[in-house]
Design a protein around this nucleic acid. Structure first.
Lengths: 180, 180
DNA sequence: GGATTCATGTAAGATGTTACATGATTGT
DNA sequence: ACAATCATGTAACATCTTACATGAATCC
């Protein structure tokens, strides 16, 4: 099974849900389009890793609520203890920063400023989620601990990137500069 | 053309080089295997975006030194000013942190500690590159400015992630905790 | 009236990885 | 002896994205 499969299991181990819901939950973990999710769910179900209950709805299309099976749970648990593969990071922004010297200061500045805006949006939406976490009942062994620390991680890193952006913008102001 | 193509142009706009060299330079910008790079170089050459000079070597295989053409330079320059696509981040580590509650504290701790080790290695290799930069002749319009700020960015973010890792490890120590 | 949400699927295409193919030189 | 570096390529496969397909309910 591929990593998307394990990401799906990770979500379903917390609560059963439909493929449609999965798509949005996976977004922060391992983004995938529904066209990739649905066929994989079928395959995993046929392998006995998942099972589903068909929910008939009126006014909306019917849906399948998937749950993880015992077999799936075993597979997930042993996967967690394996050391993770290298992360994949592909960011056009980096290429554009790298090639900044080929454009004018106005465009270079805009590139960085737009980055800040996008990061701020992400931070704001995470902030809401962080506030919703019931911190009074949160312990290191709790089901919600992993999600909570990941939300904090995202905001720490994005805030650090904003600092970096501002540092770069400051350098544009200073004719001669020095880095510590 | 795809983003890999622009990444290739970005490197070649600085100095001509072979496909083999490109593979290593691209690693921090837009990682790609040689099996993806070589066919794309051929295609770009046929489109008049690149050109190459065949260098005959003894003891080593012959090589093609690629350079960007005027046409390629124009294409690159206009691409830089377009707003970048969303970044792609896929990190198994995140899924494993998310699912930490399914394993024991020993494994959870190891997951985080191994992450720190990997980050430290990355930081150390970037540190060397940062030291090599001639900071006395570095200005915001310089060819080397983009690369320099990207190296700093990488280390800032990786150091911030290490801080986060240590914060998580601390939480394992504290029976009751609170996040600011 | 038009966009969004809910809901699941298939098909085609682009992108990325792993394996196959070759082979001399240099370092451990 | 064995691995790594240099150097380029193809083939097969896995993964991911975009487009096609359907359709009611709700919000602006």
């Amino acid at each position: 099974m591929n990593t998307l499969g394990y990401a799906i299991l990770s979500v379903l181990s917390r609560r059963p849900c439909s493929g449609y819901q999965l798509a949005s939950y996976l977004d922060v973990l391992w983004p995938a389009k529904h066209s990739q999710i649905y066929p994989l769910l079928n395959k995993m179900e046929q392998n006995g890793i998942l099972e589903f209950e068909l929910i008939k709805q009126t006014g909306k299309p019917d849906k399948k609520i998937y749950s993880i099976t015992d077999k799936g749970m075993q597979i997930l648990k042993s996967w967690i203890n394996e050391s993770p593969n290298e992360q994949i990071k592909r960011d056009e922004f980096l290429i554009k920063v790298y090639s900044m010297w080929l454009t004018d200061e106005e465009h270079a500045r805009k590139l960085i400023e737009d980055r800040i805006s996008k990061l701020e949006v992400k931070i704001a939406s995470r902030e809401i989620k962080i506030e919703e976490v019931d911190k009074d009942h949160l312990t290191t062994t709790s089901k919600h601990f992993g999600r909570y620390v990941l939300l904090c991680r995202g905001n720490l890193l994005d805030k650090e990137e904003i600092s970096w952006c501002n540092w770069v913008l400051d350098l544009f102001e200073t004719p001669s500069f020095r880095c510590e």
